[in-house]
C-alpha cells in the first residue's frame, strides 16, 4: 500500500520503534535487545538497586533468555509494569516477555490470549498477622480488616475464601507492596494477604520479624510464570526451553562455576545435548546449539538463581518448598531435552 510510505516517513523519527507481533525472535535479534516486562519493585523478584541495575528472581530469567537468544545477558531492557499495564504491554508488543510474578489462569490464557510457557515459582496466597492478635488460623479472622494488593488475583481469592467460610471482613485495597506493608505495620489492617513468598519476603525484612506470623492456610494456587503472546510459538518455545534448561542444569548438577569443566568432561548424553555438544537442538528454533549453555552461564541454574535471590542465604530466606526439584519432593519437573 502507498500509505506505508507516509507511515514510513513518520516512522523515521528517531524515537519510533517498530515492533511486530508475528516473529518476536526476529525482532529481538534485529533490535539486539530483549524487552522484558518486570515488576516496578518487589523485593527478591524484580527491583532496581542503587546503581539502577535490575536484580531479582524474575529478572534473572529475563537475563537467561537474553543470553540464550542474543548471547549477552546484559542485553535486556527492563520495562517496569504495574498491575494494570502489564498485560497490555505484552499484548501490544511493548515487551517481548513478561516475567512479573503473574499467575497463570484460564482467562489470561484463553481470553487475554497469552501463553504461560512455564511455572518458575509455585506460590499460594497466605495471610500475615501480628502475633499479639492471638490468631492462629485464617478462619479466626471474622470481622478483621485485611490489606490486599490490587491488580492481582488476590482480591478474588480473598473474597472467595471469606465467603466459603461464611466470615465477614473489610478489604483495604492497596496499590503496591510497600504501601500495603506500611499500612499493615501501622496497624491500619489486621492481616496482610498476598502470595506466601511475598509475605515471607516482607516478614523477613521487617525490623520486628518475630512479632509477625504467617498463618498456616494457603487459600489459593498461584502458579507464577513467564508469559508470551499467543500465536508466536517459536518464541514461546525458546522461553520454555531456556527455562527447562535451567531446571535440567540443576538436576544434572551443572552450575555457573563448573559449566566449562562439565562441558569438557561429561559423557552424560543429556548433559551433552543440554550444552549443545550433541544434537541440533538450538538450530531447530533458530538459535545456535549452545543457547542453553549461555543461559546457564549467565546466572547459573534454577537452584542457583533461587538461592541468590530468594534462598535461605538471603535476607528473604525462603525455603525451596514446592519449588524444589521433583527429585527432592518439589514440583519443578523439567521436560526431557531430546
Amino acid at each position: 500500500m502507498k500509505k506505508s510510505a507516509i507511515i514510513g516517513a513518520l516512522a523515521a523519527s528517531t524515537l519510533l520503534v517498530g515492533a511486530a507481533h508475528a516473529a518476536t525472535l526476529d525482532d529481538v535479534k534485529a533490535r539486539g535487545e530483549l524487552n522484558c516486562g518486570v515488576n516496578v519493585g518487589l523485593t527478591g523478584f524484580g527491583m532496581a538497586d542503587a546503581n539502577g541495575t535490575w536484580v531479582g528472581f524474575d529478572v534473572d530469567l529475563c537475563r537467561a533468555v537474553a543470553a540464550a537468544v542474543l548471547g549477552d545477558p546484559t542485553k535486556v531492557k527492563f520495562v517496569p509494569t504495574t498491575g494494570e499495564t502489564r498485560f497490555t504491554a505484552l499484548a501490544s508488543g511493548e515487551v517481548d516477555l513478561l516475567v512479573r510474578n503473574s499467575t497463570a489462569t484460564f482467562t489470561r490464557d484463553v481470553d487475554l490470549k497469552f501463553d504461560f510457557v512455564g511455572i518458575n515459582y509455585y506460590d499460594g496466597q497466605g495471610f500475615m498477622v501480628k502475633k499479639e492478635l492471638g490468631v492462629s488460623s485464617a478462619k479466626e479472622l471474622d470481622g478483621a480488616t485485611v490489606c490486599i494488593q490490587t491488580g492481582t488475583t488476590t482480591e478474588l481469592n480473598l473474597a472467595d475464601f471469606f465467603k466459603a467460610n461464611n466470615l465477614s471482613y473489610t478489604p483495604v485495597t492497596v496499590q503496591d507492596d510497600s504501601e500495603a506493608q506500611r499500612q499493615y505495620l501501622a496497624g491500619a489492617c489486621d492481616a496482610y494477604t498476598t502470595d506466601a513468598s511475598g509475605l515471607a519476603a516482607g516478614r523477613a525484612t521487617m525490623a520486628d520479624a518475630e512479632n509477625h506470623i504467617i498463618l498456616p492456610e494457603i487459600i489459593s494456587k498461584e502458579p507464577l510464570g513467564p508469559a508470551v503472546r499467543h500465536g508466536d510459538n517459536v518464541w514461546g518455545d525458546i522461553v520454555r526451553w531456556t527455562y527447562n534448561a535451567l531446571l535440567i542444569a540443576e538436576e544434572k548438577g551443572v552450575t555457573k562455576a563448573n559449566i566449562e569443566e562439565v562441558a569438557g568432561s561429561s559423557t552424560d548424553p543429556e548433559v551433552r545435548r543440554l550444552l549443545g555438544l550433541e544434537g541440533e537442538m538450538g538450530a531447530m528454533f533458530g538459535l545456535d546449539n549452545d543457547f542453553a549453555k549461555r543461559a546457564i552461564a549467565a546466572n547459573g541454574n534454577y537452584g542457583e538463581i533461587f538461592e541468590a535471590n530468594l534462598g535461605t542465604g538471603t535476607p528473604i530466606g525462603l525455603a525451596r518448598g514446592l519449588n524444589a526439584l521433583w527429585t527432592q519432593g518439589g514440583l519443578q519437573y523439567a521436560w526431557p531435552m531430546r
Partner: peptide
C-alpha cells in the same frame, strides 16, 4: 478509577 479503571479492568481485561 479504582473500580472500573482498576480492579474491573484488571479482572476482565
Amino acid at each position: 478509577r479504582g473500580t472500573l479503571g482498576g480492579i474491573t479492568l484488571n479482572q476482565t481485561g
